[in-house]
């Protein structure tokens, strides 16, 4: 419990800053919605003048995009990006800082097992992410009710927003696993940005080309916002893959950390 509280305290400021950052992004993007929806209406009129086949081709995806939910899904891409960086940073640093700050022997000579160490750290990280997500969800709901031009499905909005937590958990577990694998990490942010942006760019390529195979590779695309909005369901297959990744990474971390040669000096 002491370790848990200590970690919570150590990450209090960074959690608050990240939460405020995400709220700022939400406020910034959603406050642009009213003018966007005016643009969209005008464009609908322009669209009338074009041939019917074309209208069908572009209109379907367009109509979903022009709604508040569609607009939010678009901004959500960048929220996911920031959220993933936060989670990955947290996972990497919470484990690797002991070696980097030379506090590993202080911690590991205490009468606690390594399993307990990881468990407390894991729960502290989890608490920090859950807090961030609650702040994020609240800001989304409040902003959405301010800027809405017509009624929208709150359930869909909530379901899309909640996927942030899930993506963060995937990146958190990846971060923890990488941190136990690498003997000494000098700079956390280089590794986390590298990993997150690789997945992000893969995700962009995958969604702009609708490549089926690539989608499995990047957690950013495990949740298809359009699909969620349309059916109010998640895709079971990808939930399963996500949970498997989290479990494998966490179990591997426990196992490796249990017998790892920790650099203490």
């Amino acid at each position: 419990m002491n370790m848990f509280l200590h970690e919570l305290k150590a990450y209090r400021n960074s959690t608050i800053i990240w939460s405020l950052g995400l709220i700022a992004i939400v406020v910034l993007f959603l406050s642009l919605y009213p003018s966007f929806s005016r643009d969209a209406e005008e464009f609908m009129k322009v669209l009338e003048g074009f041939p019917e086949e074309l209208r069908k081709a572009i209109g379907l995806s367009f109509e979903t995009l022009a709604t508040l939910l569609g607009f939010f899904s678009y901004s959500f891409l960048y929220i996911k990006l920031s959220g993933a960086v936060q989670a990955m940073n947290l996972g990497l640093s919470i484990i690797s800082k002991e070696t980097r700050d030379k506090t590993a022997d202080f911690l590991l000579t205490k009468p606690v097992t390594r399993t307990q160490v990881i468990t407390s750290k894991l729960f502290a990280a989890l608490t920090s992410l859950v807090f961030t997500n609650l702040a994020f969800l609240a800001s989304v709901m409040v902003m959405a009710s301010f800027v809405k031009t017509e009624d929208f499905s709150e359930q869909a909005l909530l379901m899309v927003s909640v996927t942030l937590l899930f993506i963060q958990l995937i990146f958190l577990s990846l971060g923890i696993m990488i941190a136990v694998l690498i003997p000494r990490i000098k700079s956390v942010i280089s590794i986390s940005l590298g990993t997150v942006f690789t997945f992000f760019i893969l995700g962009m390529i995958s969604s702009s080309t609708a490549d089926k195979g690539l989608r499995y590779l990047t957690p950013f695309n495990y949740f298809d916002n359009q699909y969620i909005i349309r059916t109010l369901e998640y895709e079971g297959e990808f939930i399963f893959i996500g949970i498997s990744i989290i479990f494998t990474a966490v179990l591997a971390s426990y196992w490796i950390y249990g017998k790892k040669d920790v650099h203490s000096v």
Partner: peptide, 19 residues
Amino acid sequence: QTINELMAEMPESLQAIMG
């Protein structure tokens, strides 16, 4: 080519979203 013409008519904010 028609897609291009259509894109040209689109307001900038929509172009941004359509990517």
